[in-house]
Write a protein that binds this DNA or RNA. Structure first.
Length: 525
RNA sequence: GAUCCCGUAGCUCAGUGGUAGAGCAUCUGACUUUUAAUCAGAGGGUCGAUGGUUCGAGCCCAUCCGGGAUCACCA
């Protein structure tokens, strides 16, 4: 983006940045290890060795190279080229062992002075963290580890900042892996995810699973003929959920825009336009709320809207979707893996409250509900109406019981301004949420397509907003206009991809399924 | 936003008022099948920041910065 910023506006920042650059480059600002590594770097160049290569001809991943060793023909010595990061070095004078880590794992490599001649002397300029390429032949050492005997090697990238050294040991009795000095500081792991991925390689599996989850969702939708679309992230009016938005500013047009909190209203416009029977989007939404292990200010949402279907149909679709995702990724981690075994339990909201509290709240008016909540020890906000009180009771008394996938159906109308009134139960809407592991995972309804009803619902929201409810929805006149032209009945579903990934990987914090979690800015030394 | 806990060497951590420590990493030396390699020696710190109490503060107090957990809000 090109901006024509007056030079004075950022003068202080620029001065700070320049000062920072100067200080960072002063030799006395470096640690001894950084100075050593920079000295090694210069020595390599002085010897005519360029420590930052343009590429390397790799023929095998570490696991493939190891697999080449033939137990029945140990003298075969198949050759291979591997590339990766040096994770440990054992120098023994004229022989050196090291482990090289790549995407697939680790392989031990063996350097021998006799074989490498003068180049063997370069090894003293190598450090843990350096990225090298090596080719040679595969053999088995005296102690039994399949190893690459190096015939040629190249330095592909010299590390001038020391990597945390994590050592692993195999317990001789149990055979279990013992990790020493694990890189465990959460702040450092999140801020420097590149380091975390290197020294805690098991977390790579989490992010590979995340990618699989997203691609399996996309495939599931695509296979059924639904169309992937992209709708605006920057919106003049935000809507589709209860949340406070982020605000940004468009310089050229000189007005404020909101970062979307949901995709819903734009996707429904597209169904109205007949773009496709079903449209979906898998993308980031942004909510300006508190953050904790279940909430991140930017998070990935999947939403799909399918014409001529209702929430009953969508429930079956949702069940099929999650069963399929679980099948594709496999559920391999976590202490209490959730089995996505169909059919999922279905329970109306009233029945769920009756089941877990013994109280039937379905016929109660606001005062009775208030008294009931008080008896149950459920704290209420002053302005809570019928729907809000029921929701509070549900959250406090029912939610955490719902471990195996459970559909909760038929919500109070006041909580759901975009959902269609229940066809047979007054005061309710046709809505379901899927609960897994005591958490809401998905939310869906028969979408409201009556423009007059929708307008009335927005107006009710406006009243809440004027009473100080900052999260109440904003009336979207263009969305209403689309509905007035005629919007087919449809079913809509939305779910958080991050939470789905948490469930599928057994991670307990959303920060552990997001590569770069939001953090306050740091001062980098 | 509130409460509690944490911040000491590159990493993981000891250190409850009296000369800042350990293991790994780093440096020097030895070692041609080691694997938490080993052995001998050495260097490395604004104890998150600022202010205060004290003869004396890593330690006690206050404020601030950063992180974690719980709660609130939300998905």
């Amino acid at each position: 983006m090109t901006t024509h910023t007056p030079p004075t506006e950022h003068a202080e920042e620029i001065k700070d940045a320049l000062r920072h650059i100067e200080e960072a480059e002063r030799p006395d600002a470096l640690t001894d290890q950084e100075r050593e590594r920079r000295a090694s770097l210069e020595e390599l160049r002085a010897k005519g060795v360029e420590p930052y290569a343009y590429g390397f001809e790799r023929t095998r991943f570490s696991n493939e190279a190891i697999a080449m060793f033939d137990e029945s023909n140990p003298d075969l010595h198949p050759s291979a080229s591997v590339a990766g990061r040096i994770m440990g070095v054992r120098r023994m004078g004229k022989a050196t062992f090291a482990h090289v880590q790549d995407e697939a794992g680790k392989i031990q490599i063996y350097f021998k002075s006799n074989d490498l001649g003068e180049r063997y002397d370069l090894l003293r300029l190598l450090d843990i963290g350096d990225i090298i390429g090596a080719n040679g032949f595969v053999f088995r050492t005296r102690t039994g580890e399949i190893t690459l005997h190096v015939e040629r090697f190249e330095i592909l990238a010299k590390a001038i900042r020391p990597l945390p050294v994590v050592k692993e040991e195999t317990d001789p009795v149990t055979g279990e892996k013992i990790v020493h000095d694990a890189f465990s500081d959460k702040e450092l792991r999140y801020r420097q995810r590149y380091v975390d991925l290197v020294v805690n390689p098991e977390i790579r599996e989490t992010f590979r699973t995340r990618a699989k989850i997203i691609s399996s969702i996309r495939r599931f939708f695509d296979d059924r003929g639904y169309l992937e679309v992209e709708t605006p992230v920057l919106q003049p009016i935000y809507g589709g959920a209860y949340a406070r938005p982020f605000v940004t500013h468009h310089n050229a047009l000189d007005f404020d825009l909101f970062l979307r909190i949901a995709d819903e209203l734009y996707l429904k416009r597209l169904v109205a336009g007949g773009l496709a029977t079903g449209v979906y989007e898998i993308a980031k939404d942004f909510r300006n709320e508190g953050m904790d292990k279940n909430h991140s200010p930017e998070f990935t949402m999947a939403e799909i809207y399918i014409a001529y279907k209702d929430y009953e149909w969508m429930m079956a679709f949702t069940e099929e979707l999650f069963v399929e995702v679980a099948r594709v990724v496999g559920i391999h981690r976590g202490s209490a893996p959730i089995q996505f075994t169909p059919p999922f339990r279905r329970l109306s909201m009233y029945d769920s409250i009756k089941e877990y509290t013994g109280t039937d709240v379905s016929k109660m008016n606001e005062d009775e509900l208030r008294i009931t909540a008080k008896h149950m020890g459920v704290p209420l906000e002053a302005g809570s109406g019928v729907g809000k009180i029921i929701d509070e009771i549900f959250s406090a008394k029912v939610e955490h019981h719902l471990i195996e996938p459970t559909f909760i159906t038929d919500y109070p109308l006041s909580m759901s301004p975009l959902a269609k009134s229940h066809r047979s139960q007054p005061g309710l809407v046709e809505r379901f949420e899927l609960y897994v592991n005591g958490q809401e995972l998905a939310n869906a309804f028969s979408e409201l397509n009556d423009p007059l009803d929708q307008r009335a619902r927005f107006e009710e929201q406006a009243r809440l907003r004027s009473k100080g409810d900052e999260e109440a929805m904003v009336l979207d006149e263009d969305f209403l206009r689309a509905m007035e032209y005629g919007m087919p009945p449809m079913a809509g579903l939305g779910f958080g991809v991050d939470r789905l990934t948490m469930i599928m990987t057994g991670e307990e914090s959303i920060r552990d399924v997001v590569l770069f979690p939001a953090m306050r800015p740091e001062k980098i030394r």
